[in-house]
Design a protein around this nucleic acid. Structure first.
Lengths: 234, 234
DNA sequence: TGTACATCAGTGAACGCGCGTTCACTGATGTAC
DNA sequence: TGTACATCAGTGAACGCGCGTTCACTGATGTAC
């Protein structure tokens, strides 16, 4: 089978597939996850609505692609920001990840809503989305791992140590066993607060009647949390 | 004007109005904010769709009522939980508010999504919603105020004190001037983390592949944050 | 090199659905004399 | 106490819209001999 011409077709197919994703992303930015419509995508591309079904089995597949693209876009932004200050120490790395996340979310609020907002009703995310979804957590865990190796103090286990050990078991299982529980807990807490703060701002709970300078507050807040995690010395 | 009979009509009107809200809440729980439909509400009530327009100017008015009902329902739950341990000290009060919020959100995930999830596109919340929305923040601020009066230590202002003073100005303006900035900041951070953690759990970022015991983790987490806020002694 | 056949991207009409909102109407309930 | 009138809750048909998905089709592009 001479793949010459076949390749041409494949390339054309890939180009259209990519264009569908692009147009859908642009539309997502305008109308949000709930307003996404295959017909509107087809219209924008100048195609018949039915043509899209050559490229997608159903609408949910488009949603899945958008979710993966969103996680990847955010993940890349955070990874790039972290890499740029990688040698400047844990505090700078932590703050770089936080600010990159916030900046990306403010620039792409609907895409952010798709991945960290209310779940789209009736849609169940397939397995393909979990890899991209863990890029930020992995970044945080790597950071905490480095800090640990560099002598970050490990707090003594509290009274609920056993219960917590059991509680975090699934996440533990994805990491080397020498990582202390308290570090996993810290990672989760930092991750939670980061997205809690960003969600509050993106979803309108930090408007002008609460804060005049959300950027300054966010910086202060994440610095304080960096202290709680042990990443920023008091 | 003898208000006898008029009152009867008014009562009937109020009853129907209340029923609309009830049916809408039930439907919200099933299909989520985006799936809400006036026609479905009317169907459920055995009325013609057009009849609803005697009670609502447009669909957004129903959304507004649901949002207010949601904030009030959550606010009442948190207030009741706090009142029940009001004399047991700041740590218990803080944890009571946290657990009440989480419990309510897990029991009413769609209602939670309506008020703390992605904003409904095209809907702008009117002024009526801000009062009910501030019930939890007010509860937290009262708690911090009491703790302050009881001798909660106020940290020395940091290098960014002036910038932060300006950043939180709008929220400051709603509170007595003797409240220190750092307390306002702590209140905001506690509020943020509480809803960040609850949103993560309700929106599916703390599933079985991350945590085996989200309740235990939440308890640990909020206790740790209570420490950061100064509400729980180390 | 030319011809018969296979693949496959894209079309356009159609199906069946649900939505918010309007409008002229009926009929019961309340009001004024 | 009885009668003429006003109010107003609820009806049912209609408007105009957009949606996801199917299906038989056309016509260009690629493949095999």
């Amino acid at each position: 089978m001479p793949p010459r011409a076949r390749l041409a077709r494949e390339r054309a197919r890939d180009a259209v597939t990519a264009e569908i994703l692009d147009v859908a992303r642009a539309q997502l930015a305008e109308v949000g996850p709930g307003g996404l419509s295959l017909r509107a995508v087809a219209r924008e591309m100048g195609m018949a609505p039915s043509a899209l079904f050559r490229y997608l089995p159903h609408k949910d597949a488009l949603l899945t692609r958008l979710i993966i693209a969103g996680y990847d876009s955010l993940g890349e932004a955070a990874e790039a920001a972290e890499a740029a200050v990688h040698d400047a120490g844990p505090a700078e790395r932590w703050m770089a990840i936080c600010h990159a996340t916030r900046d990306w979310a403010l620039a792409n609020p609907q895409e952010y809503a798709l991945i960290y907002g209310s779940p789209v009703p009736g849609y169940a995310a397939p397995q393909d989305t979990v890899g991209p979804a863990t890029r930020i957590p992995r970044l945080l865990m790597a950071l905490l791992g480095d800090a640990l190796a560099a002598g970050l103090p490990v707090p003594a286990p509290g009274a609920d140590a056993e219960r917590m050990h059991a509680a975090i078991a699934p996440l533990r299982a994805t990491m080397p066993p020498e990582v202390p529980d308290s570090m996993v807990v810290r990672g989760l807490i930092g991750w939670t607060h980061l997205f809690g703060a960003v969600s509050f701002e993106v979803f309108g709970h930090r408007t002008f009647d609460v804060l005049d300078d959300p950027a300054a507050f966010f910086d202060h807040e994440m610095r304080l949390l960096g202290g709680l995690l042990g990443l920023i010395p008091a």
